[in-house]
Structure formats: C-alpha cells, structure tokens
C-alpha cells in the first residue's frame, strides 16, 4: 500500500499543481479549468446522458471492429504461416498496405460507406488488422515442427492441428498483436469520430471544444484516456490469465 502511494504520488502532485495554477490565477481558467471544475462538468455530462450515449456508440464501434479484425487477422495469419500459396498471395498486398498511415484511409471509408458507423468500423478494422495478421503469422510460423508432426502422427486432422496445436502455441504473439491493435484502434476510432462527427466520444470532445465548454471537453478527454488506459491494463490481465498454462 505504501509502495503504491509513493509510486503514484507524482500523479497526485501533478493534479495538485493543475488545481493550484488556475485557482491562484497563474493560468487563465478558460485555458486550464481546474480538476474540481472538470469533475463537476463530468458529473453534468454523466447526468445529461451525453457521456453514456456517445461512449456507448464508441464502444460498440470499437468492439465490432476488434472482433472483426481479430477473427480475420488470425485466420489470415495462420493460413499464411501454414500454406505457402496463401503467403504468396496475401503477403505482397499486406506489405503494400503496411506503410500507409491508416488514418489516411478514413476519407476513403467515408466515400465508400457514408458518414456513419460503418465507416468508423471499417477504419478501425483496417488499422487493427495488420498488427494482428503480422504477429499471428510470425507466431504460427515459429511453432515447433515436432509438435505439429506428433499431433499428425496420432491422427489429428488439419483443422484440429490448427485449433489445438498451432493457435495455442502462437498465443503469446497473437495476444501481443491484439494489444497493439487495441491501442491503434483507439487512435483510429477517435480520429474517425473527429472527422465524421455526429456521435461518439471523439465527436463529443470536438463539439464541446468548439462550443467553448472547456471543462466538459477536459472531462471527455480524461474519460477516453481512462478508457484507453483501463482497456490496456485489463487486456494485460487477460493475457496473463490466458498464458498461465505455459508456466
């Protein structure tokens, strides 16, 4: 407990400085509303339902895109590692896609799917796909050949080999890829919401900013930051659980 306090004391100090600067008039309140004001604004957003409505919209987009990219990514990565034909077909395309800053594809998704949730899901999906495919591919390719041979020698069918041997053995890499994908997914989600507008936590931030409601804007930024942070920490816990059998 004491170690925890000492470790996170700097965050508290920073919060104290943040509160003191505008309260003492050293910084313009409009430019930096103190945390106490931000907390009030957060509660207002919570009661008005704005936070819940926009947060839920963002969450649904993120979850859909992640589920899609995880399933497609693992499928693609494993088949590329197992079948040289699949590798030869998909690798050049993925290599061509790799250096594109994925945020540049958001306008194309808007052209294709309009100004709605589909464009956001597609943008986040494209951003998340590559890290998952790449890490699954390397993980699945690194599986010890003897494991595959022994499972085959006891009569495992190709699907069973992939499901029971290759995917579990590649799991550390796959999960590391998904962790990267979650971080990139948040970036693309908020970028898409800033551009598409209408709904979502990114939209809420830019709306409050443009309306000059800065305490609310700070509250929304802190909310999405907390969400990104907690998502990462929660996923690390899931990773430890899922990999506990390896020890």
């Amino acid at each position: 407990m004491k170690a925890f306090v000492i470790r996170y004391l700097p965050l508290l100090i920073l919060g104290g400085i943040w509160e003191a600067l505008p309260q003492l008039g050293l910084v313009d309140r409009a430019q930096l509303p103190p945390p106490s004001e931000v907390a009030v604004a957060w509660l207002e957003l919570l009661y008005s339902g704005d936070l819940a409505a926009n947060g839920l919209s963002s969450l649904v987009v993120l979850v859909q895109a992640l589920l899609l990219s995880v399933s497609v990514g693992i499928l693609l990565g494993v088949s590329m590692a197992r079948f040289s034909l699949a590798q030869d077909m998909f690798e050049p395309v993925l290599k061509a896609l790799y250096p594109v800053p994925k945020s540049a594809l958001i306008p194309i998704m808007i052209i294709w799917f309009g100004l709605g949730a589909t464009s956001k899901v597609a943008s986040v999906f494209l951003g998340c796909l590559l890290p998952i495919v790449t890490s699954t591919f390397y993980g699945a390719r690194g599986v010890e050949q003897t494991l595959i041979w022994s499972s085959q020698s006891v009569g495992a069918r190709p699907v069973a080999v992939i499901r029971d041997v290759i995917i579990p053995a590649a799991m550390p890499d796959i999960l590391a890829g998904i962790r990267n994908a979650i971080a990139i997914g948040f970036i693309l989600l908020i970028s898409a919401e800033l551009l598409i507008g209408q709904v979502g936590i990114g939209y809420l931030i830019s709306f409050l900013g443009e309306a000059g409601l800065y305490p609310g804007m700070f509250a929304a930024i802190l909310t999405v930051s907390a969400a990104g942070f907690l998502a990462d920490r929660a996923f690390v816990l899931v990773m430890r659980r899922a990999l506990a059998w390896r020890q």
């Binding site: 971080a183 948040f186 970036i187 908020i190 900013g209 929304a220 930024i221 999405v224 930051s225 942070f229």
Partner: peptide, 14 residues
C-alpha cells in the same frame, strides 16, 4: 497506452 489523439482539441485550445 493513452489515445493521445483525443488531446487534439486541447492542443488547439492552447
């Protein structure tokens, strides 16, 4: 792990 891009409107303000 924070999605830093969410701070963009804040950077615009400052």
């Amino acid at each position: 792990p924070l999605p830093k891009i969410a701070f963009l409107p804040l950077f615009v303000l400052w």
